[in-house]
């Protein structure tokens, strides 16, 4: 499977993360999204006429919508989720991307936008997520759709974790913080710039740390 990828994209990271969590191998092809806007060029539009990332190509299958890619990769794994509640969160992930992701692109990648409106919209979706995680917790569930993580969580998580890049701080969201901690503690979790692993779960670096290879 080939993933056309940009390392700082939240949606591309969601795909890489799900592949890692489910033990699937991706061949990533870096696309110069910033500053080159290569995804809008003729060469890339031959792969995805919409000119967007991520794009997954698996033999005859080409998928360019983040939720569809997650659904494809999750098939047959514990991360698969079906039904209206799953669809609700997958659709909501586009609102998180537009608002929190829009604020982040404004602040980090010089993309024009009404930054105050983007942050306000992002905070609204964080409120909805915080309330949903509270209610899930009351039902004994640590994740959006149950007691194990699914593509619903993976679709939302990157946009939330990167919200501070767009000036939306996460201090005031206790259930979201604990949910992110659970996700970051999953076996096989991988990082991206801005989303680091839980160092406290890793062994302490020894005295030869960084020098052993020399």
């Amino acid at each position: 499977m080939i993933l056309y990828d940009y390392v700082l994209s939240a949606d591309c990271y969601a795909v890489r993360l799900l592949a890692a969590l489910t033990g699937q191998r991706l061949e990533t092809r870096a696309v110069d999204f910033y500053p080159g806007a290569a995804e809008k060029g003729a060469a890339f539009r031959a792969i995805n006429p919409a000119g967007t990332l991520p794009v997954l190509v698996d033999g005859e299958v080409t998928l360019a919508e983040p939720a569809a890619i997650l659904m494809y990769l999750a098939t047959g794994t514990s991360f698969a989720a079906e039904g209206a509640s799953a669809q609700e969160w997958l659709a909501r992930s586009r609102h998180f991307a537009a608002a929190l992701g829009g604020a982040r692109q404004h602040d980090m990648l010089e993309v024009p936008g009404d930054i105050d409106a983007l942050r306000a919209e992002g905070s609204l979706w964080l409120r909805i997520l915080e309330a949903a995680l509270f209610e899930a917790g009351e039902e004994g569930c640590g994740f959006l759709l149950g007691d194990t993580p699914t593509i619903a969580d993976i679709a939302i998580f990157p946009h939330v974790a990167l919200a501070p890049d767009g000036g939306v701080e996460l201090g005031a969201w206790p259930r979201i913080r604990l949910w992110m901690r659970r996700l970051r503690a999953l076996p096989g979790f991988i990082e991206m710039p801005g989303i680091h692993r839980l160092h406290d779960l890793k062994p302490e670096p020894g005295p030869d740390y960084g020098g052993a290879a020399a």
Partner: peptide, 16 residues
Amino acid sequence: VALTPDLPPGGAVPVR
């Protein structure tokens, strides 16, 4: 500044 279950062992939170 917080409810006790929202800061379990190993946690760190910013406070204004």
